[in-house]
Amino acid sequence: MGPSAPDSWNLYDTPMTSRLWMGSSHFPNWNVFASACELAKPGFITLSLRRQTATGGQSYWKLIRSLDIPILPNTAGCFSAHEAIQLAEISRDTFETDWIKVEVIADEQSLHPEGPELIRACEVLIQKGFKVLPYCSDDLSICKALTDVGCRALMPLGAPIGTGLGLLNPFNLERLRYRFPKIPLILDAGLGKPSQATQVMEMGFDAVLLNTAISQSVNPAEMALAFLEAVSAGHRAFKAVPMPAQPNAQPSTPSMDMPIGDYRVGAELYGN
């Protein structure tokens, strides 16, 4: 593959090219959101369903359709498997897509993902033919249980939703990459800066999902582009395989035939 050739990856047998997905919340206005999308060219835009008036969401939907970017409905706000399954089925019927980002929240304050209820929801939804993308913790046992019930991708968090704290537990994330080498990993939640996206892509993650890191920046369009470049840099670095870290310094410039500072020259000068 040449240095500038695009590469693709597979998600539920679907070829993907973009490694940056975007949420659509908290943008100052729809024009800013559209500009960010046009620059970042996200592989998915996440959205949800809520009770609204008949015209509520109309301008939003019109914009989403005009961007011509695949949509990824979520089950945000669900606190049980039953709720998540129900909202997933409503979303599939409404949006006519099998893709679903499954969120089952355990705690209202931290928005930390549930464990057993999430696993149960994913198991049922996979049996119903959904392409399930579980928003999960970085806990190995939960991730293993999710793959055991048929999840063919995982979306572990970097930090709590919307915090911008970055990768709170890089060790766990690296272990997930090592433990599930063939499962697409999409870092979901908690990123705040492009360098954090680079870091997780350097670990070998397949993509990142971003929302507030872009929408809450002062210049969302510029930040979207910065994240796009950061994701690309991290992925390229992963493919290039970084050098192993080592404790001792190694001179970059050869020390042989040094024109000055040679011990023998010094000995002659100072008569030692």
């Binding site: 949420g23 659509s24 919340s25 908290h26 943008f27 996440t46 959205l47 949800s48 369903l49 809520r50 009770r51 609204q52 008036t53 008949a54 509520g56 969401g57 109309q58 939003y60 939907w61 989403i64 409905p73 979520n74 945000a76 409503i90 409404t94 949006f95 939703i161 919307g162 939640a189 999902l209 929302n211 507030t212």
Partner: peptide, 10 residues
């Protein structure tokens, strides 16, 4: 009738 329509999400 509860009418649900698309809304922004993360």
């Amino acid at each position: 009738i509860d009418l649900l329509s698309p809304i922004q999400g993360g």
